[in-house]
Design a protein around this nucleic acid. Sequence first.
DNA 1: GTGAAAGCGCTAACAT
DNA 2: ATGTTAGCGCTTTCAC
Lengths: 338, 338
Amino acid sequence: MSVTLTDVAQVAGVSVATASRVLSHSDHPVNSQTRQRVQQAADELGYRPNLIARNLRLERTFTLGVVLENVAEFFTSLILRGILDYFAGSAYSIIILNTYYDERTEIEAVKALIRRSAEGIIFIDTAMHSVEDIASPNAIPSVFVNRRYKVAEKHCIIPDNRHNAQLATEHLVKLGHRRIAYIGGPEGWEATYERHAGYCDVLTQYNLSYQPPMVAEGDWQLASGYQSAQRFARLPNPPTAIFASNDRMALGAIYALHDDGKCVPEDVAVVGFDNRAFTELVRPAITTVSLPGHEMGQTAARLLLNQVEGQDLPRGIVPTCGQMIVRESCGALHTNSQ
Amino acid sequence: MSVTLTDVAQVAGVSVATASRVLSHSDHPVNSQTRQRVQQAADELGYRPNLIARNLRLERTFTLGVVLENVAEFFTSLILRGILDYFAGSAYSIIILNTYYDERTEIEAVKALIRRSAEGIIFIDTAMHSVEDIASPNAIPSVFVNRRYKVAEKHCIIPDNRHNAQLATEHLVKLGHRRIAYIGGPEGWEATYERHAGYCDVLTQYNLSYQPPMVAEGDWQLASGYQSAQRFARLPNPPTAIFASNDRMALGAIYALHDDGKCVPEDVAVVGFDNRAFTELVRPAITTVSLPGHEMGQTAARLLLNQVEGQDLPRGIVPTCGQMIVRESCGALHTNSQ
DNA sequence: GTGAAAGCGCTAACAT
DNA sequence: ATGTTAGCGCTTTCAC
């Protein structure tokens, strides 16, 4: 039913070898007249190379895997899009496996990819602590995005949390704020420590004192931002600005300030982190730090391809800088606050 | 380097045929002792079947494609997750192609899938008007999700917009509202007509009159919801409730009411549509209609598999019902409004 | 510049 | 119940 190379060769009056040389764009020399005859025969017959057969012969699969915790997570989908875009139009097929933050599912996903002879894997948001239980760490080329791999000798594309937190804090300083409170994440998260460090860096840089009552520990959820801001408001000398280390907590802080009769940004400026979709819909629209997810995906794709195609670049952490998205909640758009 | 069936057969002291029969779970009878020997040899050698070779022989690819407009669209990613979940652990590989609402990219995507001999395609959010230009409509099994295919004889899993709009409208009626305004979508969208019809159905059912000044045409964006609500507020006899046919317009309406000094839901109840993530974060949290994206994805996967495996069920539209998500903006949680 | 032929790893018809 | 063998469609040596 389907037309094969043999059919094309027959119609063109050449051997399969020649037909193959023409149609697989081999660099073996072929007479231009013959070439044309083969091409024409292929066109007429509607020849489509059987990639399975080709791959069997070539001992390759041109299959890459993406193992991720949850496609429906916005940032993850952005990274994924970057990866898909990078490979769009290429010979590679990208197959995707969702692991739902479950280590066993993760292991199954990697096994499935090995079974399909995937040539490389990109892990998004995945610690994959057990990757070496399945395949020796270097057996299959892999790149980690948005999560650090515990063993160093892997490509890891991660946000430069420290730098990005500096960005946010400095933005507030430059708007004239001197008493800047900070709402951090829960203990145990790398992001928590790094963002806190970024906040501290800027205080030091501008000779502002670090005041423990103006630093709260949240749990990434809205309510914890609310409570933290409430606490700040009761201080004898409350902050004029709050940097919340994610957008949900920033929104919680804004609600607390509103409930306390304060205006944002007129009375207190607020800056968030992550650039979630809701930040531009709420009132006031939240100034925040955006991470280039798409770009991170592209970088991951490029680094994986490098490994797969053998030009293994030196591996390591690739920190990625974010960008301030200035909206209403920081006051920059309205007045020179303070 | 990699261990083949021949290796296993040799070690087990049997022929490749027997080894194959054991390891490919064929139903051909094999002596249980031999079976054991083969299994053991395979385990010892760490045999992994070469799927490329198997697929070449079986003339199958076990590859399915998902063509979608944008993975980073929340509802799309939900559907995708349903599909991935359905095929998790199966023999099928799912490859995904992003088309960015571009018809040419869409065509390229389908071509790429045909080139890879995909056995079926799920289109999400894609009209794919040109599918028959590439392959005759029935050449490759396919299912459409969240978009109706222009030719009838395809599986289409789409939201039952009319029913879902009835749900929202009826919810307001049951809360005692009699003057319910409606903010529709722009002309040209099927969803616009269907949701409007659902709104009308309920008015009729409860003997409420359809009042043109209480029906506005929006463009799905926040600002159009704002303007519509503003117009409603200026009516001599303004509505006590607004049903906006998407969440962004619902939020816009809430802002307009606030700016007009009205309280939501105390003065005016608002119901949205889509259950976007922000609806539970804003103030008041928006009552809305949720679509079962994950379930729609699973259904699509099941219907595709049916086609691929030859038991072609009768094709047609599969309308999917949504569910009311009751939050604050409709007033149901606070009081028996009105 | 072209062709004949081997063989990638596997399955299944056919023979025993 | 087991083995022999052909062949899936392709690429690539090797010979001419």
